[in-house]
Design a protein around this nucleic acid. Sequence first.
DNA 1: TTCCAGGAGAGAG
DNA 2: CTCTCTCATGGA
Length: 297
Amino acid sequence: MTQIQNVTDFSLKYTLESGQSFRWERVDNAYYGVVEGRILKISQEGTTLHVESSTDEDEADFVPYLRHYLDIVRDVPKLLVGVNNDAYMDRAIEKLWGMRILNQELWETIASFILSQNNNVPRIRGIIRRLSERFSERLTLAGYVDYSFPSPDVLATATEDTLLACGTGYRANYLKDTAQAIVSGELSLTSLQQMPYTEAKQELMRRNGIGEKVADCICLFSLGHLAALPIDVWIKRIFETLYLRRRATHREIREFAHTYFGDSVGYAQQYLFHYVHECPNWADAEHLSLTKMKSLL
DNA sequence: TTCCAGGAGAGAG
DNA sequence: CTCTCTCATGGA
């Protein structure tokens, strides 16, 4: 058992339950997930995080990694002041105070968001769980069972039928193709991690099955590029309803959002995305009064 | 039964 | 460039 102390302006719940990771499960007051080939159990008590690991490594060595994974090291409050441009964002930031954007493992993030297309969160979680169970290593922590995420080699050599049996559907070939590109060296994970945002995004989009939205998810949820803006049906809906007040193309939304929210638009996006999921009546008239909105509209 | 889900690709215009 | 259609799957 390790403790991480003085964790301010942080919400474990909103960070792990906001749709950016498919690997965390809440049991009572704690979250179980698989990171770097081990099960972690994390719970939050005020500004203290309690951490248990399925490996008996020196857990203190893992703390710096975990602080980075949870994005605790970033001055998020300062960043949120910069994107708090209107009454609506203000409400989202207040409601979801402490939510952070994770810095997740690259290969698992690539695979997960390839699987996410035209799919829903519970099913994505199920597919990832079945792939891990079928193709990777069983882990336990105090009676809790989960599986590490399968490596590119394993998925590159898996038969399509086996992938389909895990529920991947038509995305099976997308997953396998990208796994093979990594194995062959055509796509380098370490190179991706050294590229600036635009370059990394373009490199990702060369893969079959990775379009603009999935590439932006990978850039935002793994590579730490806060300028990335994944536009899914919800983000499109939000910007068309609340901000632009008309039908808009992705390019128009992207242009407006980056001008309006600046270089941390990815963080703003995550607060808006999760806020509308927390508040089903988000589009009600009362919520639409953007009285404090800056004069960009 | 139809619709929807953190979409992408192919084709047509 | 934009629009439309299809893709596999399961829950509502």
